[in-house]
Structure formats: C-alpha cells, structure tokens
Amino acid sequence: MVIRYLPRPSSVSTAALALGALVLLSSPAAATDVPAEPAPPRPLPAYSSALLDRPGVQVRPGPGAPGLPSGVSALAWVVADAQTGEVLAARDAHRQLPPASTLKSLFALATLPRLDARMQHVVDEHELEDIGEGSSMVGVAAGRTYQVSDLWRGVFLSSGNDAVHVLAGLNGGLDTTVRQMRVKARELGARDTHVVSPDGYDAPGQVSSAYDLAVFGRAGLADPQFSSYCSTRTAKFPAGGWSYPIQNTNRLLTGADGVTPYPGLLGVKNGYTSHAGSTLISAAQRDGRTLVVTVMNPQAGGGRAVYEEARSLLDWGFAAAGKVGPVGSLLPPPKADRTGPQPAHAAGKAALSAQSDDSDWPAMLMVGAGAAALLAGCVVVVRRRAATVARRTRAGDRGD
C-alpha cells in the first residue's frame, strides 16, 4: 500500500490557510496559547494640515477658548509654546518680510558657540567699516580692548551694529558669518529667511518671517548664554578706563518710554528700520508655561504698538492654554529633508512628518502578521500529515 500525502498547497490554498491561521491566532484560545505582542502606540500628529501655509489668521479654538485679541495690526505674527514647539495661532506665519534687528537672534545662534566669551580683543579700525548709515550703535571704538561678553551685551541690549561687525570679524569675517547664519537657519527649519547682513540692517533680498523668528527665539531660550544676554535689562559698557550704563532697548522688558513691563518676560530681541517697521521676538513664562510671540510691522498705533500687540498676544496665549488645538509646529524637519532645495513653507509639513516618523509600523505589523499566519498554516499541514500517517499505521497500512 502507498501512503498518499496531501498535495502541495497552491498559492490560493496557501493564502486561505494563512487567512485561517490568522483568524485562529486572533481568537481567544489562540491568544491564550500564544500571547500577542502589544501594538506599539502610534503618536498623534500635533496638527492635521499645513495650516501655517495658508494666508490670514489660523487658529483652532476648542470649548472655552478665548477669542483672539482685536486690534492686532501687525502684518504677521505667531504665538507658540516654547516647550512643545506647538504654534497656537498665527497670521501669515510664512510671509517674508524684512526682520530688522530681530535677525541678530540668528546671528547669536550661529556665532555664540564659536567665540570664547572671556576672550579679550583690541578693535581694529577696519572692523568698523561698512556699517550701515543710521545704524544703532553701542559705542565700540577702534584701539580699545573689549571682552567678547561685553560685545555680546552691546548686541543684545543696545542692538549695536558696531558690536556685531567686530564679533563677525572675530568669527572669520562678514561673508563667513552670513554663510553660517544661512546654514543655521536651515538646520532649525527656518526656510523663509535669507541673510545678507548679519546685523539685520536693511539690504536687498534680506527677509525672514514671523514663523522663523519664533524658531530663532525658541532655540535661543534653550541656550544658557543666549537666554542670559537677552534677558539682561541693564549693564555697563567699557570705554577705556571707565564704563557707561546701557539699557536693553526691549521696552516690554525694561518698561521704558511709558511701556508697562510684562510680568515674567524673558526677552528676546526687538528691531526697527524704516523699511521693516517695528519687529519683535518676545518670550514670557507663567505657571510653568513658556510662550514665544513674534510680531512684524504693526500698521497702527505708533512706536509702542509692537509691544502692546505682543502683550495682548501673550495674554491670549496663556489664557488659551489647553483650550486651542495647534495649527503647526516650530520643530525642525527631519535631517534628511534639510538637504537640497526646499520650498519656503515646507517647515510645517515636515514637522508633521517628523512627529509621525514611525508611520511604517502598521505595514511592518501586517508583514509580521502575514508571516505568522503562513507559519501557522504550515504547522497545520504538518500536523495533518502526521495524523494521517499515524491513523493509517494503526490500521496496518504500513507502506514500502
């Protein structure tokens, strides 16, 4: 007698066995025999669409959310959570506008780590050349010796373009510094910024955005040196054998010129040129929460408007905590996405991808489940063959 083995399963029967095995594996009995691995939690995206790419005001109010402040006339603004990077509301976040001296925040991010704050330097006359007419100055003079930390206070408090030029010279020159600032902006996911001059002085083609300025402010708060300088209200600046007081030009920090100081303000940087208008990066902390607000070029209200509009947006941001859904993120895109040309408004979409970088796990899980089902089908076939052999052997059908 010849033992008749089961025929080799066709692709159709294999699929049927795999499907049957998958059903068996998902049944309570199969779960008891072989405990299933818990599925990894899939992170929820911070926002569902690239709202920041759209023009106009973007906000996602939830139950009990306060209304946005009226009378904010700035061409562009952003309110963001500094810890999470979530953008709570914005207007024309990616609109490219001249940044004025708020661009000094990017200069600091790119240059601070490269210069020893304790280093002494004698200023040469050529380091003070090519400073734009009408620039803000702290009073750096050729032939005098300055510590690098003094020059940084001149940058942050007095917005001194003379101090910027000397520091850029120590960093390898203006051209080198501009290249480094461009690279730093791309590393941070700031795609709207084009640097021409490191001091933020008006120059053809030099632009940034409310979104990018918020990125720079958030990054600066994470740097101890940066955060220390940008929150300093007053200091003394050396002048040979003596020194003179300097005060931070951020009126929201100091309360100068009739502007009431904002409680919990951490800085960051203000700016003004006739072309850019007033610009401001501000950050404040309250009840363990830190917000970054950027305001670019208010169209009404005079010289104090940039501070009062930032104040109202900060107030709204703290009141809206937990009551609004984010409309975007300040988080940088994945590193792979930062190489090569990118559209100016890709940061929001890339941040969404960054938060879902394990999005392939469902496919991997399906592949694993399919493999497990196929293996289970093979086990069923083997067991059936063995049972057939045993049954026929007991009946005397031994074979040759």
Rank of each mutant, 00 (worst) to 15 (best):
Y229K: 15
L213G: 08
N270M: 10
N250T: 04
K269V: 10
R233G: 04
T232H: 09
I246D: 01
D223H: 08
S278W: 15
L266F: 03
Y262V: 08
V207P: 00
V215R: 13
T232C: 12
C230A: 15
A256F: 03
Y211D: 12
P261Q: 05
V259A: 07
A214Q: 10
S227P: 05
N270T: 14
S231M: 02
G264F: 13
S208N: 07
L221C: 10
C230H: 04
N270Y: 13
G241L: 13
L265Q: 10
P204W: 05
G205F: 01
R233S: 05
S243V: 07
G267D: 03
Y211H: 14
P245L: 04
G258T: 11
T234L: 01
P238R: 04
P261W: 08
F216P: 13
A219P: 08
L253Y: 07
V268M: 13
N248R: 03
G205E: 07
R251P: 00
G258L: 07
D212I: 05
S231C: 05
Q225M: 12
Q225F: 09
A222M: 01
G217V: 06
S243F: 11
L265I: 15
F226N: 14
T254D: 00
G220R: 11
P224S: 12
Q206H: 06
P224A: 12
Q247C: 00
D223F: 01
G217F: 03
A203C: 07
P263Y: 14
Y211Q: 11
G217E: 07
G271M: 07
A239P: 04
A214I: 02
P245Q: 03
A210M: 04
V215G: 11
S208K: 01
G241P: 12
K236P: 00
D202T: 15
T254A: 01
D212S: 08
P238W: 06
D223R: 11
A239M: 12
F226H: 13
T249D: 01
A276C: 06
G258I: 12
D212L: 04
R251V: 00
S243N: 11
T234H: 06
V259P: 06
R233L: 02
D202A: 13
Y272Q: 06
Q247L: 05
P204M: 10
L253V: 06
D257P: 06
Y244L: 07
G264S: 09
N250C: 02
G277Q: 02
A214N: 10
S274H: 09
L253N: 03
G240L: 08
Y201R: 07
G217L: 09
S243K: 10
F226C: 14
P261V: 01
H275S: 06
F226M: 14
Y229Q: 15
P263G: 03
P245A: 09
G205V: 12
L266S: 06
G220C: 12
P238S: 11
K269S: 05
L221F: 13
Q206K: 03
P263Q: 08
L265V: 14
I246H: 02
G264K: 13
A222Y: 00
A203K: 07
A239C: 08
Q206E: 14
G277N: 02
A239Q: 13
P224V: 00
Q225Y: 08
P204G: 12
Q206D: 07
N248L: 02
L266V: 10
S209A: 11
S228T: 04
L266M: 10
D212H: 01
P245T: 00
P261H: 09
Y229W: 15
S208E: 10
G241F: 12
A222I: 02
